[in-house]
Write a protein that binds this DNA or RNA. Structure first.
Lengths: 221, 221
DNA sequence: CCTTGTGAAGTAATTCACAGCC
DNA sequence: GGCTGTGAATTACTTCACAAGG
């Protein structure tokens, strides 16, 4: 699944690398030169053995008795994740969510820049959004080609999501982050990650005590 | 981990139940009376054996040769997920993301209602947001008690996230959906799910071809 | 027939526990 | 002494393959 040229890293590890990356950014900003697997585990909310195993998959950069060099590890992880460069992204859908994502701080130092927000609604086209201006979806091909965009973010209503994905695939996008509660049908060479907020809440609800009080509690007279 | 009174269901299955639930809602709306494991698997983007195994964990409701009764299965899954009722939720943080979440359609028929959006910024308090009005964070305890809220959504900047979580825990919230890129420190009886958009993008970037062209392609003169 | 439900087999991920190195 | 790196053990998850029921 991973592009050739890199040793294969388990998917479970890949999913945690961004977390370590985030923690290491914080450590670097605090000026910490090294970190032990135990400390990093605490920060990331996992256990130390897992951290060591995860990090061992792409070479051993730790020093026994000392720990890992924060700056070095950061470079290694960024490189493994392909975020030792900037990835331009486009957002399709300039509704509430799309707009929020477009102005979302916190992509920048983690490898991503939103280079365009598009919509089909003429009422939204031309509206300013942070440093960008909403563009018509017909500009997608030109924008993607010009900026070398590989990643698209789908933030349209569910009924329009497949159509949006088709357009993205058509113009050469190979990764899609999908916020619509829909399973997108895309070619094999295109990867999709879904973020469905209701799904997350339902998983929380599963673990909630079913007998939890609920609904307005009227103060009995 | 799951509340007593229900057979233990593997975590991997729990994570897929919401997906099946969503697909079944669509099937019901289309008027489909039954669905086979194969069809449901297609809709959910998983394989049929997995669907059958997952569904077998909370009783066998299928009919051999026919499939599963859509309406019945929907009830069973909703019940297993604890969403055969409505869960009131509060959102802390009325910035771009919090506002988008507050007005987000698609919670309602999946078991959740946003009953309040709070912020500490006096400039935001009082602002209308859909059918709600932004309230001051000091109103949290009263709101949670009155509406019987068990689930809180953290949509504040990272630096304020732990503080927001502390407040939520303080007033009795037991589930937190955290959009801040921070590992929250909460008591054992409180569960947290993290949604970090940069993490999702980084996982996509990992699988992207590192040699992918990137950045503005200037038309050579 | 078709489709479920499930043991058994296979695969992946986690955790243990300790040797080896600083 | 402290901490990494890793085989081995464990646990969890997935997939196969088929018997049994409608």
């Amino acid at each position: 699944m991973a592009p050739s040229g890199r040793a294969s890293i388990p998917e479970a590890t890949v999913a945690r690398l961004p977390l370590y990356h985030r923690c290491l950014l914080d450590l670097r900003d605090e000026g910490r030169p090294t970190v032990s697997s135990e400390q990093l585990a605490d920060l990331a909310g996992v256990n130390a053995a897992k951290v060591r195993k995860d990090l061992s998959h792409f070479g051993s950069y730790g020093t026994r008795g000392v720990g890992y060099d924060v700056a070095h590890l950061l470079v290694e992880i960024a490189s493994a994740l392909n975020v030792d460069r900037d990835w331009p992204c486009v957002i399709v859908g300039a509704g509430n969510l799309g707009s929020a994502l477009a102005t979302f701080a916190g992509f920048t130092n983690r490898g991503f820049t939103v280079v365009g927000v598009l919509d089909v609604d003429p009422a939204k086209v031309g509206r300013p959004l942070g440093s960008l201006t909403v563009r018509h979806q017909d500009d997608l091909a030109e924008l993607v080609a010009r900026e070398g965009v590989a990643i698209g973010i789908v933030a349209v209503p569910p009924v329009a999501a497949q159509e949006a994905a088709d357009r993205l695939v058509e113009v050469g996008i190979t990764s899609i982050l999908n916020f619509a509660p829909t399973v997108l049908d895309v070619p094999d060479h295109v990867q999709v990650r879904d973020v469905d907020l209701a799904v997350e809440l339902q998983i929380l609800a599963f673990h909630e005590d079913p007998s939890r009080r609920v609904g307005p509690t009227r103060t009995a007279g």
